[in-house]
Write a protein that binds this DNA or RNA. Structure first.
Ligand SMILES: [Zn+2]
Length: 527
DNA sequence: CGGATTTGACCGGCGC
DNA sequence: GCGCCGGTCAAATCCG
């Protein structure tokens, strides 16, 4: 009896917690959006002095919804349903898409250029991005059933893994709760399991021990990983008291210049602009990836890689995103390592884009912290998860188009890359939607919570085939970009071009529903 | 002195 | 049940 009651209470508690998280996440997300919008507006005002553009946007903006420019981002970020987005999409259409997109990008760049908060270090550019999402091999949706509904709604739970009993976990608060039930709970009901966490990992070249992502992190552990000589460090976000976001930093065994940072969980607080930017980027990338993956991923594993039309000459940055399902839990990895490769061609010099070495910390332009809770889709920015819930798994939009749009071209510039990616992703609603769907499907399928990071190896070159060992992977590549290692700003030139290209590409896609896949935010930071 | 690291002990899951 | 392993705690320590 007591047990029953107890279980019931726990369950209830859990739900409440989830709701709380959700709400806070939403709040954060809104804040972020608002911030962005404001920035954009300012930019617009300045840039576009006169009104060319007009439209009702203002209203939208005021509302806090998305401004046209930001649309893409917002979509990614927003949790809300498509409904909101559509309007924006329409708007976009109204305007010339291309120009629009381009502008957006430009705006973003501008932002990047002037990072709101200066990070101590210079920003570095990244060149490629690879994203991989891995989820456990196919997930079965088994569990979902039970929860699904709940999950979908409740999503948030971060499922961090276990909770420890006592402890002051309190301080940590809500977030933690997760866990679980495991002990007590009987297997039956809760599928808690359900909470699978999604993770977002970023691979970047950096000499610095950490990549700065705009968040503050406290190291809470270090362990030697089985496969590498290099130890893996565990960090927890300290920007807010209870922030559940954690990240692990580890150097790639094969190439020690590559730093692999994996984020898990959603921030329960607003992210600094810089971080937000990253987050956006990340999310975008993730989204892209997902979308791609979606296609295939459904049940079987397939790896996909979208290679961008290699063709894009301009694109130098290569970015790849991959989604893989193999890992215990779904993981999206962005590969920022340089590598230019065009498909088939060799890489030229190698300049991997390293983050600035020397600098104590490198900053990645735009990623944001992620979080991924199990069941939930990644959140972007602060938190909002995109819900992929909305799309029924079945519906995954498969994008046939897939490959094309994806690539981002990054420019050299740091900011640019990310942005470009983001922009690209963002821009294409379809992608987002696709990704979301894909992710959702994947995630939904379910992996039980587990976590592990996956990393891609770097091969740069292989072209587009999936290399991912496990199952599906999608890659998006751009060209590379390199740039001067040193300058932080150097990049701007290309970026614009690239962006344009991207925009075009994107343009093709339809506006769709962008939804984010799993929640996850990522942030980089080096400290 | 307060906050961040360091680092070995712990824990829970998993495979055998 | 045992041991491996990833991940986390927390006491001790470091540092500004
Ligand atoms: Zn945080």
């Amino acid at each position: 009896m007591l047990k029953v009651e107890l279980d019931r209470l726990k369950d209830e508690n859990r739900k409440l917690r989830s709701m709380l998280d959700q709400i806070s996440s939403s709040y954060n997300a809104l804040q972020c959006q608002l911030l962005e919008l404001m920035e954009q507006q300012d930019e617009r005002d300045q840039i576009i002095s006169s009104g060319r553009r007009d439209h009702e946007n203002d209203d939208d903006e005021k509302n806090g919804m998305s401004s046209p420019t930001s649309t893409a981002k917002l979509q990614l970020m927003e949790t809300d349903g498509p409904s909101t987005r559509q309007p924006t999409d329409n708007i976009i259409k109204d305007h010339q898409i291309h120009s629009h997109l381009i502008r957006e990008q430009d705006n973003e760049e501008a932002k990047l250029d002037q990072p709101p908060q200066a990070s101590p270090t210079t920003t570095t550019t990244t060149s490629n991005i690879k994203i991989k999402v891995m989820s456990k091999e196919h997930y079965h949706r088994d569990y979902d059933d039970d929860d699904d509904d709940d999950d979908d709604q409740m999503l948030l739970q971060t499922a961090s893994g276990r909770k420890r009993q006592q402890q002051s976990s309190m301080t940590e608060d809500h977030t933690n709760g997760d866990n679980h039930l495991q002990k007590l709970k009987s297997p039956e009901q809760v599928p808690e399991v359900p909470f699978r966490k999604a993770r977002v990992s970023v691979r970047a070249r950096s000499d610095a021990p950490m990549i700065s992502d705009g968040c503050q992190w406290r190291k809470y552990g270090q362990k030697m990983a089985k496969g590498n000589p290099c130890p893996r460090a565990y960090y927890r976000c300290t920007m807010a008291v209870g922030c559940p976001v954690r990240k692990q930093v580890q150097r790639c065994a094969e190439d020690k210049t590559i730093l692999i940072t994996t984020y898990e969980g959603n921030h329960n607080h607003p992210l600094p602009p810089a971080a937000a930017a990253m987050a956006n980027t990340t999310s975008a990338a993730a989204t892209m990836v997902l979308s791609g993956s979606t296609t295939s991923s459904t049940s079987t594993n397939n790896g996909f890689q979208l290679s961008p039309p290699a063709a894009f000459p301009a694109a130098y940055t290569s970015t790849m995103a991959t989604l893989s399902t193999s890992a215990p839990f779904p993981t999206i990895t962005l590969d920022l390592t340089h590598v230019p490769n065009n498909n088939n061609h060799h890489h030229h010099h190698h300049h991997p884009m390293q983050f600035q070495q020397l600098l104590p910390s490198t900053v990645l332009p735009a990623f944001h912290g992620g979080h991924a809770a199990a069941g939930c889709p990644p959140q972007l920015l602060v938190g909002q998860p995109l819900m992929y819930n909305q799309l029924p798994p079945n519906k995954l939009p498969i994008m046939s188009t897939s490959s094309a749009g994806v690539q981002l071209v990054g420019g050299q510039m740091q900011p640019s890359m990310v942005e470009s990616v983001t922009a690209a992703i963002a821009t294409d609603p379809n992608f987002s939607a696709a990704l979301a769907a894909a992710i959702s499907s994947i995630i939904a399928a379910g992996a039980p919570r587990s976590t592990t990071t996956t990393t891609t190896t770097n091969n740069n070159n292989d072209d587009n085939y999936n290399t991912s060992p496990t199952s599906n992977s999608i890659n998006v590549n751009g060209g590379n970009n390199n740039n001067n290692p040193s300058s932080s700003y150097a990049a701007s030139n290309n970026s614009s071009n690239i962006k344009k290209q991207v925009a075009h590409v994107v343009g093709h896609h339809h506006p769709g529903s962008p939804q984010l896949p799993a929640q996850s935010c990522t942030t980089f930071s080096t400290n």
